[in-house]
Write a protein that binds this DNA or RNA. Structure first.
Lengths: 218, 218
DNA sequence: TACATCCTGTACACCGATGCACGAGTTTTG
DNA sequence: CAAAACTCGTGCATCGGTGTACAGGATGTA
């Protein structure tokens, strides 16, 4: 007769973080379990950074943990990605929350971009992976807050005349995104120094968003 | 006794387009075979546009052709992608070649971007697929001409004072790329009208590349 | 017409990734 | 200390994609 049976069976459903969003913390969770969970989340980011389509095995290895241990915390690959991205974004929010948004719009924008770019650089690979694993809605949901903040700032800038109004905010927003991502990519391939990146980004965006002459309305 | 044997075996190495770049045209190639080859190449583009990681079976289906027929023309998935991308780029070159590059740099840039953007929009999905299937060197090789053209124009613009010189050409170049790609993506998700795209792109790039005041040299 | 060329499907071997089952060991926690 | 919680590995079933083998039917070309 086996000493214990189904330990894993019941344990598998550990981390009953019901909705994948926030954790409902399993009342009794051992300390090292939490550590491991954190390790895996971190490993997910770094592993995917190295290899955009890393397998679950790769990630587990990166975390220095057995593959099955990982499955003890997350039911499937998708749930793992989801959790990793959620945590990554949450961590980003903590930073972004501190950025002062009042005062001169251009200046605030500069600050927000500087802070955002680092975060983008860190988790853009993960984001890409998530896009082919999670429903688009879920991803948008997670970015909601960050996106709203940027959009709000852009909008205010337009109203105050700091930013041009002949283009929709949407376009300013995606432009900001793509330029930051482009910089991240350039850093990755070694064509750009990470420290210079924020400056390069501003050097493009500020002039682009700040009208001087009239811009040929077709 | 089989009537014919190894028909395919010898036929498999058909399309001996030695170097995958240009075709050395197998002396005797039946007309419908060429048509089919073209169909498959076209199907590769459209299939991958729909689903970034379409299988060989998917592509064959899209081309209205048996999977094995496809393997009769291309040994690997990689070779298929390579051929499709090469053809796509070659077709693009034919267009780009016609764009006048002399005269006012800003104006030439405007024209080049307008022509390029359409091409980017058409084959960016394929490009993405190629990036995880082909060696990076091969891809750069294929883009060589197009990239050189754009870089040359940018450089001339800088020398003539039309474009700002406080940023490396490299950065201007990647900025151009990412903004075009961003526009393509926006079109894809329906947030941007394809006809407006070129204008939106210029609206960002021209002011960004054309210095008016001094740009705070750090 | 006659033959080389091409298309077709089916069937199969192979590979890598996912996820489950089991049966231990090992560490925390009370 | 002892039970509960957790880790770990091996093995296995499954699935989807790739590429090969074979064998006959269809079609273009000379």
């Amino acid at each position: 007769m086996p000493t214990k049976k189904g330990t894993q069976a019941s344990g598998t459903r550990r981390a009953p973080a019901s909705g994948p969003t926030s954790g409902g913390r399993a009342a009794n969770q051992r300390a090292d379990a939490q550590r491991n969970r954190a390790k895996m989340l971190a490993a997910t980011v770094t592993a995917i950074r190295k290899n955009p389509d890393a397998s679950v095995a790769d990630i587990a290895a990166e975390a220095g943990v057995g593959r099955m241990t990982l499955y003890g915390h997350f039911q499937n690959r998708a749930e793992l990605i989801d959790a990793a991205l959620a945590e990554s974004i949450e961590r980003g929010e903590e930073v972004l929350r501190e950025v002062p948004l009042d005062g001169e719009a251009t200046e605030a924008f500069r600050g927000l971009v500087a802070s955002s770019w680092v975060l983008v650089d860190q988790s853009r690979a993960l984001l890409a992976a998530a896009q082919k694993e999670l429903p688009a809605a879920r991803i948008r949901e997670m970015h909601e807050k960050a996106e709203a903040r940027m959009r709000g700032l852009l909008l205010r800038g337009q109203r105050e005349g700091a930013f041009r109004s002949d283009l929709p905010v949407t376009w300013l927003l995606t432009t900001t995104h793509v330029v930051m991502n482009g910089a991240a990519e350039e850093v990755r391939v070694g064509r750009l120094d990470p420290d210079d990146a924020p400056w390069f980004i501003e050097a493009i965006l500020i002039p682009a968003f700040t009208v001087t002459g009239e811009t040929d309305p077709r």
